[in-house]
């Protein structure tokens, strides 16, 4: 099996406190790999280190055998890694179409000359934009401004922007955060559908979603990896139960 992402001894210290310490993790191509853990387990720090927002104190991240440790975050989409944010993070005053178009353009333009062409010269990007928007079910809102969408729709748009980069690996940071129950179901379905085409590293707080869709689950607690395995193994793990119930 092909390991698309290899993380070795990843560590982040804030002063004398270590938020993440010595985490090892390998993501297999074509699967959903989830990272879970109780609040304050260091999930966000872990995510931000992989996605280039904060540089790690120690350890390395390899993507397709390339060392990408501490790469600036704008370089990652060009290598095939795209991320989706925990909080809704779109371009509010731009239309849905522009939001997604910009994302596709970012990774598909070949030379800087394209920057100065007319917006009408990119027929394939226009088409891709419409396809992705219809995939997330926002076709009827395509010319509305992002700020005019409902919260759930903005999350879908967020996902569409992420997909615009045409990534091989998707990093999803709590995609169901703050969604209503029906929207959560919708999002879970979308992730399941996406897993047919993408490898997904999912950071999630809600246990039942993770159990439902992941192939492998890694559990973090107090910045350390305490367990890893299939959903079934995790369900029966004593260590995980203790961590979630706050027992030491």
């Amino acid at each position: 099996m092909n390991k698309i992402l290899k993380i070795e001894n990843l560590t982040k210290n804030f002063g004398s406190i270590s938020a993440v310490s010595n985490v090892n993790l390998e993501v297999e191509e074509g699967t959903i790999h989830s990272v879970i853990g109780p609040n304050g387990a260091g999930k966000s720090t872990f995510f931000n280190m992989i996605s280039g927002v904060i540089p790690p104190s120690n350890g390395s991240v390899h993507y397709k055998d390339k060392d990408i440790t501490g790469f600036e975050s704008y370089k990652l989409p060009h290598m095939g890694i795209a991320k989706c944010f925990q909080i809704t993070n779109v371009f509010p005053k731009l239309t849905v179409r522009e939001n997604v178009w910009a994302s596709i353009f970012s990774c598909s333009h070949k030379s800087k000359i394209d920057l100065f062409k007319s917006m009408n010269d990119f027929k394939t990007i226009d088409k891709d934009t419409e396809n992705i928007i219809s995939d997330v079910g926002l076709s009827h809102k395509i010319d509305d401004k992002a700020e005019e969408l409902s919260h759930g729709q903005q999350r879908m748009l967020e996902m569409a922007i992420t997909l615009g980069a045409k990534p091989d690996l998707l990093l999803l940071d709590e995609p169901t955060q703050g969604l209503a129950p029906e929207a959560t179901v919708e999002m879970t379905e979308l992730i399941r559908k996406l897993s047919k085409n993408y490898t997904i590293l999912l950071i999630e707080h809600k246990m039942h979603i993770v159990m439902e869709i992941s192939k492998i689950i890694t559990v973090l607690n107090f910045g350390e990896k305490i367990e890893e395995g299939t959903p079934k193994q995790i369900k029966n793990s004593k260590k995980v139960q203790d961590a979630y119930l706050g027992r030491k």
Partner: peptide, 22 residues
């Protein structure tokens, strides 16, 4: 009216997201 103009607007609207999409 070129893609460059759109990128400028992305930066105005949300610089960190613009960075994240490459």
């Amino acid at each position: 009216t070129s893609p460059l103009g759109l990128i400028f607007k992305l930066i105005r609207e949300n610089a960190s997201r613009a960075e994240a999409i490459g």
